[in-house]
Design a protein around this nucleic acid. Structure first.
Lengths: 362, 362
DNA sequence: TTGTAAGCGTTATCAT
DNA sequence: ATGATAACGCTTACAA
């Protein structure tokens, strides 16, 4: 047979213990423990002896035994109350995880991504994960403020932070209001007036923030807000395509699509309808996900520092964990930036600056 | 302030222990332990008393303490030696994880997705995860046979299985050879002769299998194999776009692209070059990822049961774990299936079955 | 500076 | 059927 027969459940790393190292080095267990944990008061000489013994025996501390007494595991979880499909198809989560992982690695923690098969069983499964005692803290992303997971976290006293504004959790966020407002005002500045928007699920606070930015931008230009021009796309590509179908009969000149993943769906659907972007309909996205520049046409979008968001969320959590929540910390809000490519029709407008009906900026 | 101040590192679930339950129920710790673990010889009466005490106290066993003695954690890891970016942009991994998670949930295990920030540090990080003692076993996906992770696994005696053919690990695979051959023969049957292919990294066994299928299909139709028509696209969208750039000067009539993610890149790049699919170049993919049918034109591709792959890999691992590797198991190979949509030009061929001899490309 | 000993919360092996 | 008691491998007062 070509592969090893496996023996035992857990790695047989356990065979060599503190005890044996102590014996070989001619010291007590405590002393070995001290050098391992870098305690100050150990003579350089014995320290050397212990280190050598550790080396010779190939000793490695047993984290579970250690956890039992220290109550620490160095494991945190990332909770995303969405289906696995969505997590992996929304361009947002890749960079987010990347940043989170980076922060974890930098501080010696392990990141567990809690994945669900069935979104309806999410509560049950999360609780199982959280209750299992391995998880010291959690960062929850993409959760509405009333998500049961958040309540569960609170009840269990598990330290947690959120990605995106939250009511009862410390959080890291980007300036969604500003981003949405910039996107919409950009469209207004280009001369569009009949501007629709496709949003994410409205129970998410950051979705509301973006919607507010959109509304206020319209107001600032004296354009009346029309309920019918707002459609919910659920942050998915197909959801956005459906939302577009509702919007199209209203003949929007431009659409502010509140995520790049949805924008990709919109571009595709628009093409299916035989409409060209930006000539027939201008489109602006949100995220500046990796694919944004690759779309056809390249997507004008609001860049948010997604990796940084993940990184800072983890940092915030670890700070809380390690200071045991003594300090009061603010909720960082990261800046966003408008990235102008061509889906907004800026080229066309530049070439033929005709559509100049009224642009008076306050 | 709006959110709880957090106390302590780990959930304060620990406050109630076996001891206290025992006291309340008026029995010994051992008895409580027995009812919790469903041991046979406990009188119905005491069992009821214990259960009630557990209920009243809200007791939950402490998995870490338990692990210390049982040597089991019910945690397995999914190792994907790729950058986080790639994991989240390749349409393959979403469904794979979904299947894996499902299998885990069904059997009471926890799935940890080991994520890397820097692919160059992967070895170090994996080792840390594996050595930390929480992980009972691992399923490794997308690893070449000489990946250091595999060796590390062996050395540590950590049970592992692979997704995709491997030399030194039990594995679950799909019939890559057959899929590639079907795809290529489909193109040949439609009359194309100058057929290029864009592959994944050639050190992966399943990539080699697909390449073999492609070659043999050509041979079966008496078409000479041309090295120059094979380009490596690294399983990424941009990699595929670069590969296409190399291929285009050779005027291929059709391209067998060995993943849907790469195919999406190829379609985009082709459009950028002003070429139409399938009229100028026909394209066939591999995976039947969720986006395949949404592409423009809808992608003809080889469907592999990715979720099932993930599911079965985990099942295989858990079987090994729980039987302690006594039994000898085969390596399941799942069937694939050709899904014909329109990127292969079947419509056009049907309408005008003319293209029987040469190519006229710009 | 170092050793002794008492846990941490379980399960497992004996007895009874 | 149930209860002592000894592990599991480590950290951490408290002593020395």
């Amino acid at each position: 047979m070509s592969y090893h027969p496996f023996v035992g459940a857990l790695p047989n790393r356990g065979v060599v213990t503190l005890e044996e190292v102590a014996r070989l080095a001619g010291v007590s267990r405590s002393t070995v423990s001290r050098v391992i944990n870098g305690h100050p008061h150990v003579s350089a000489e014995t320290k050397a002896r212990v280190l050598e013994a550790i080396e010779r025996l190939g000793y490695r501390p047993h984290p579970i035994a250690r956890s039992l007494v220290t109550k620490r595991t160095q494991i945190i979880a990332m909770l995303i109350p969405e289906s696995v499909t969505k997590i992996f198809s929304d361009q947002f989560f890749g960079p987010l995880l990347q940043g989170a992982v980076q922060a974890c690695n930098a501080r010696g923690y392990q990141l567990v991504l809690a994945l669900l098969d069935d979104p309806r069983r999410q509560e049950e499964l999360y609780l199982k994960l959280l209750h299992n005692g391995y998880v010291e803290g959690a960062v929850v992303a993409s959760a509405p403020p009333d998500d049961p997971v958040i309540q569960a976290l609170q009840e269990d006293g598990i330290p947690a932070v959120a990605v995106g504004r939250q009511l009862r959790l410390p959080y890291v966020d980007v300036d969604n209001y500003r981003g949405a407002r910039m996107a919409t005002e950009h469209l207004l500045r280009l001369g569009y007036r009949r501007i629709a928007t496709i949003t994410g699920p409205l129970d998410h606070l950051h979705v509301q923030d973006r919607l507010a930015g959109y509304r206020d931008a319209l107001a600032a230009y004296g354009v009346p807000y029309e309920e019918a021009l707002v459609a919910e796309g659920g942050f998915t590509e197909v959801g956005a395509m459906a939302a577009l179908a509702k919007l199209l009969p209203l003949n929007p000149e431009a659409i502010f699509v509140q995520s790049d993943t949805m924008a990709a769906g919109v571009l595709r659907a628009l093409r299916n309808h035989g409409l060209s972007v930006p000539d027939d309909v201008a489109v602006v996205g949100f995220d500046d996900a990796p694919l944004a520049s690759l779309l056809d046409p390249p997507l004008t979008t609001v860049r948010q520092p997604i990796r940084l968001l993940g990184f800072m969320a983890v940092e915030l959590l670890l700070d809380i964990l390690e200071d045991r929540g003594e300090k009061e910390r603010g909720n960082p809000v990261l800046p966003v930036e408008l990235v102008v490519r061509s889906s907004c029709g800026i080229d066309r407008v530049r070439r033929a600056p005709s559509k100049e009906t009224g642009s008076q900026n306050p």
